[in-house]
Structures are given as C-alpha cells and as structure tokens.
Amino acid sequence: MSKINIGIVGTGSIVNTYKKCIDELAEGELVALYTKSASRKESAEKAFGVPVFDTMDEFLQNDIDLVCVCNESGRHGEAIKAAASAGKHVLCEKPLETTPHKIDEVIAFCKAKNVKLGCTLQNRCGEDYQRVVEAVGSGKLGKLVMGNAHINWYRDEKYYDDSKWKGTMAFDGGAALINQGIHTIDLLLHIMGSVTSVFGKVSTLVHNIEGEDVGAGILNFQNGAIGTITAGTALFPGYPERIEIYGEMGSILMEGGSIKAWNIKDTPTFEPTSNADKGSRAADPA
C-alpha cells in the first residue's frame, strides 16, 4: 500500500501533536506545511523537517492526498474550500467553522467537489468512553433519562492576551463553549442523541474577550431525556471535564476521560483502569 501524503495548514502548537501522530502511522507521511506568515517559514521548516510554504497555491501544488486544517477556527472554511478545490481530502481540527451556516457551507462544498471531509473529535476513541457507548448501546442503562456535561475549566488572562484570535467572535466563534467545551459536548450528544430544544445563557465575567467565559444550558433530547451543560474558562482553579449519563437502570460518570462511577442494577461494579485523569486540560495553558 502506498503512503498517504499529508499536508498541514498552520504551524501553531497543535501541529506538534499532528506531526507526532503522523510519524506513528506506517501508511502516512507529512510532506508539506502552509503558514500565512512568511516570517515563520524558516523556523517551521527546522521544527518539522518538511518544506513550508507561505502561499496556499504553492502548498497545494505538492503531491498531497490529505490536508489537515489546523489554523485559526475562523479561517477553517477558506482552507477547506481551497483544499477541496484542489481535489484534496480534508481532516479539520475542531470546529469545522465558527457558525452553523459556515459549517453547512463547507460540508456542501466538499460534497460538490467529491472529496472527503472529517472533523477531529478524538475523544470518542477513548477506551473508557467506548465502554460507556457499549453500555448505553446494549441497553444496560435502560431508557435514558438525563445526560450532563460539565467543562468547568480555567484559563488565565495571559492565555487570551498571547493570542490574536482566541476569544474573538470572528476567529474563535466565541470562547469557552466552542473552543474548550466542544469535545465533551460532542461526547454527550454522541451518547444521548439529537436535541430538540435548548435554553441557554452565556456571559463574559472575568476575561477581556468578546466570547463567553462562562455558559450554561438546559437541553431536551429527542428521546425524551433532559440534560445540562456548563462550561467556562473563568472557573478557578479548573476541574476535570465531567460527563454524567443516567438511565432508568443506572448511571455512569466520567471525569478527565476516565470512568469514575459505574452503578448499574444487576451489573458488576466496573473497576476503573486508572485513577488518573487521562486527558483533562482543566488548567492547561494551551
């Protein structure tokens, strides 16, 4: 099998993670990067060991099968469209874009260009989370009655001051919910299913940003269950993200990617694989 040639749009900190993952893939190879900043070309080439281009046209002229979009959220759409127009498949860092309209637009665009479009929601692959999915899918919890997601994190002012785009409406689409909360909210919806109505409130109470640094919502799910979401980047000192799934036969609680409680009627108690939080970035400066 021939290798999949991969190019990355962006040279920010997340690219280090993508590079590590690509290096671990026998069937994948990083071949090029794109940065809009000409001044970053040389340092990026030294850091990643591949050619770096500061024009999108030059970047896309390379023999690339898959483009990973890792630039600012509000510029995802233009990068996705450019890659799709060049016949490249796309894997985009979350979120696909900053508004539902823009997201629908890039999905339709990629369909029209007959290229595949994916969004990076890697928390679905967690071992403990897969056990929760299996328990719910096999009916162990019975009828679902409530699902809650809490992403009560903290970021200091420097986190936003050091970035030209984080916390802005144009390029972040908001703040705590769309940036930090998105992965945990995705897991909640993946388990609980479609939502029929939402009542929510967001506020900016601590940070000097356009987007929200605290938010809360009440959800009605299509299956009849209800739920809540809380999220923030102003909640010192920051606590591991938490998912609570309640059914008529029991409940499962996860924190930081690990199952913390497993209480299901007529089912043996689950023994967690580790007491450590696997993936929480509750107070991570990144």
Score class of each variant (00 low, 15 high):
Lys166Trp: 11
Gly173Pro: 05
Lys265Gly: 03
Leu235Asn: 10
Glu248His: 04
Glu244Ala: 04
Val195Leu: 09
Ala216Ile: 15
Arg242His: 11
Asp186Tyr: 05
Gly193Ile: 03
Thr196Tyr: 03
Asn179Arg: 13
Gly217Pro: 10
Ala231Trp: 11
Leu235Ser: 09
Gly181Val: 01
Ala231Met: 09
Gly232Glu: 04
Gly211Glu: 08
Met254Asn: 00
Tyr239Ala: 08
Gly227Ser: 06
Leu219Asp: 11
Gly224Ser: 07
Glu212Pro: 04
Ile191Ser: 03
Leu187Gly: 03
Ser258Phe: 12
Asp162Leu: 08
Ile191Asn: 01
Gly167Leu: 08
Gly227Ala: 06
Met249Lys: 15
Gln222Trp: 02
Thr184Asn: 10
Thr228Trp: 00
Asp161Phe: 14
Ile264Asp: 06
Ser251Gln: 15
Gln222Ile: 06
Leu205Glu: 15
Gly193His: 05
Gly224Gln: 06
Phe236Glu: 12
Ile243Met: 09
Gln180Lys: 12
Gly238Gln: 01
Trp262Thr: 06
Lys166Gly: 08
Asn263Phe: 04
Leu253Gln: 10
Asn263Asp: 15
Ala225Met: 02
Met192Lys: 06
Lys166Asn: 13
Ala216Tyr: 13
Thr273Gln: 11
Gly215Gln: 04
Ser274Val: 04
Gly215Asn: 03
Gly174Ala: 06
Met192Cys: 09
Ser203Ala: 13
Gly181Met: 01
Ile178Pro: 00
Ile191Tyr: 01
Ala225Val: 08
Leu189Asp: 08
Lys260Ile: 13
Gly247Arg: 03
Val206Asn: 11
Asn179Pro: 00
His183Gln: 08
Tyr246Ile: 13
Ile229Arg: 07
Asp266Cys: 03
Ala170Met: 08
Asp161Tyr: 14
Ser274Ile: 00
Ala216Phe: 14
Val202Arg: 14
Asp213Met: 08
Met169Gly: 10
Gly181Phe: 08
Gly238Trp: 02
Arg242Thr: 12
Pro240Ala: 12
Ser251Phe: 14
Ala175Asn: 11
Gly238Cys: 09
Gly193Asn: 09
Ile191His: 02
Lys158Phe: 13
Pro237Asp: 07
Gly193Trp: 07
Ile229Ser: 07
Leu177Phe: 15
Phe171His: 11
Ser203Asp: 13
Leu189Tyr: 05
Ile226Trp: 14
Leu187Asp: 05
Pro237Cys: 02
Ile191Ala: 02
His183Cys: 09
Gly217Ser: 15
Ile243Val: 12
Asp266Ile: 03
Ser163Ile: 06
Leu187Tyr: 02
Ile226His: 12
Pro268Ile: 02
His183Lys: 03
Ala261Lys: 14
Ile226Met: 14
Trp165Phe: 10
Ile245Trp: 01
Trp262His: 03
Gly250Lys: 01
Leu235Pro: 01
Ala176Met: 00
Gly217Trp: 10
Glu248Ala: 05
Phe236Cys: 10
Met192Trp: 07
Leu219Trp: 06
Pro240Lys: 05
Val195Met: 07
Thr230Arg: 12
Phe270Cys: 14
Leu177Asp: 09
Gln222Leu: 12
Leu253Glu: 13
Ala261Tyr: 13
Asp162Ser: 11
Pro272Tyr: 14
Ala234Ile: 01
Ile245Gln: 02
His207Met: 04
Glu255Asn: 05
Ala175Glu: 08
Glu244Gly: 02
Gly167Trp: 03
Glu157Thr: 12
Ala216Gly: 13
Pro237Val: 01
Thr168Ser: 09
Phe221Leu: 07
Ile226Lys: 15
Ile226Ser: 14
Met192Phe: 00
Trp165Leu: 09
Trp165Gly: 07
